Simulated assay, not measured.
Amino acid sequence: MTKLSTILAGTAVAMFAQIAAAQAPMSQSQAVVPPNDPAYIDQSRLNYTQDPYVKARIARGQANAEYRAERKEARTEYKQEVGAARAERREAVKDANSTRAAEIRNEPMK
């Protein structure tokens, strides 16, 4: 039992120390960044249009957008065709049923 209470007390002290350290004001020195120093300039933004990986990513994104648009258009066209085919099939079934019913009514009994 004494080992457990010692472990719990140590854990509590460590936790409170971490909380106190996180809440303590930190002294930050404001470093002056030279405006044109290449070490401080964001190179990724400067080479954005020259980077082959960025160019490939942009081209891939545009190709994916075009593909999605074409796919969406093709899907709507397909759905319309399927709907028209279903309606045509329903009409054919109705005509066949009505024709069959008329034939049955007109047949003489055996």
Rank of each mutant, 00 (worst) to 15 (best):
A85R: 03
G83A: 14
K72D: 13
V33N: 07
E73M: 01
Q23C: 11
T11P: 00
Q30C: 06
K55Y: 03
V93C: 04
V13L: 09
D51T: 02
R105W: 15
I41M: 02
Y78S: 07
N106P: 06
R105L: 14
M15D: 11
K79I: 10
A69S: 01
E66M: 03
T99D: 12
D51G: 01
N97A: 14
A14C: 05
P34C: 04
V13K: 12
Y40Q: 04
I7E: 12
E66D: 05
N47K: 08
S5A: 09
K72V: 07
E77W: 04
K55L: 13
P35S: 03
Q18I: 15
T99R: 15
E88R: 11
P108V: 15
P25T: 12
Q43L: 06
G10P: 00
G83Q: 13
M15A: 14
G10M: 00
Y67F: 13
T99N: 10
L8R: 14
L8W: 06
R100T: 09
Q50A: 12
K79W: 10
E77H: 11
Q62E: 07
V33W: 04
F16N: 12
E66Y: 02
L46K: 02
Q28R: 09
R68E: 09
K3I: 12
Q23G: 08
T11W: 05
Y78A: 12
K110P: 15
R60Y: 06
M15Q: 13
K55N: 11
S98T: 04
K94Y: 09
S29K: 10
A39H: 08
A63Y: 01
Q50M: 12
